[in-house]
Simulated assay, not measured.
Amino acid sequence: MVDIVLAIDGFSGTGKSSTAKKVASALGYTYIDSGAMYRCIARYFIDHQISFEKEKEVIAALDEILISFRFNNMLNASEILLNGQIMDYQIRLPEVDEIVSQIATQPFIRKALVSRQQALGQRKKIVMDGRDIGTVVFPDAALKIFMTADLDIRSKRRKKELEEQGIQVNSEEIKKNLFSRDYLDTNRLDSPLIKAEDAIVLDSSYLIFEDQVKKIVDLANKIIYEG
């Protein structure tokens, strides 16, 4: 049996995070949401009125930001904390959606977070999802999954997710936001969203959630137990 790093990349709204959480739980691995780390940065910048375009301000702010993960046994789920405070809906609000992709394009921010992400994976036994996990953060990951889905389906999922949190949003605005994020993510100069050559593509458009989780768990177990 071997311990591995499992990298899951893909577009917003494809179910990366929810899938990665379930896969990690099934494997007994730690789940790390790299996208939530960027969202924590965005939340901090909004709350402290920091412009992500001002490099000196950003570098100083990054020294004040502590992002950590812990497993909540009662919830049977991983939690992300920003300077000791649990982050949940606060990093999923539309105001964060509007700037998180722009923040992720800043090379000095990406460099700082990639270093932190790599440190989290030194002992392996992790499932990390994001947009450059299999290409930049862990290019030697034993298993890489690239998730995609139809834009309209992703928009409906995102709307449902927000409404379940009591947030009313316009369907067209969500679709425009996802389209814009797709463009920014795939066209940024530093670590763009692309499929790693050895990644396995998983289209979640019409898959039952449990089936997509099982597909990945089966692939991971084959590597873990068979090498």
Rank of each mutant, 00 (worst) to 15 (best):
G35H: 09
D198T: 14
Q212E: 10
L113Q: 14
V5A: 07
G227C: 01
I216E: 06
S51L: 04
L66G: 01
V213H: 09
L219H: 13
S204P: 08
S101I: 01
I91T: 08
E98P: 00
L143A: 04
E164W: 00
K22H: 11
I208T: 12
G84D: 02
E161Y: 10
I153S: 09
K195V: 02
I67E: 08
K124S: 01
I41S: 00
S25P: 00
F209R: 05
I41E: 02
I4C: 07
E172K: 12
I50F: 11
Y38F: 15
R188D: 03
A149M: 04
M87S: 01
E164P: 00
F52W: 14
D185M: 10
I153Q: 14
G166V: 03
I174F: 04
K56M: 08
A199I: 10
R131Q: 08
R123M: 06
V201Y: 07
S51Q: 08
I99P: 06
A61D: 05
G121Y: 08
M37H: 11
F179Q: 15
I126F: 02
D47W: 05
S180I: 05
Y44L: 03
F69N: 03
I194C: 13
S51G: 04
V137H: 11
V169T: 12
L184V: 15
L113T: 09
H48A: 00
D211K: 15
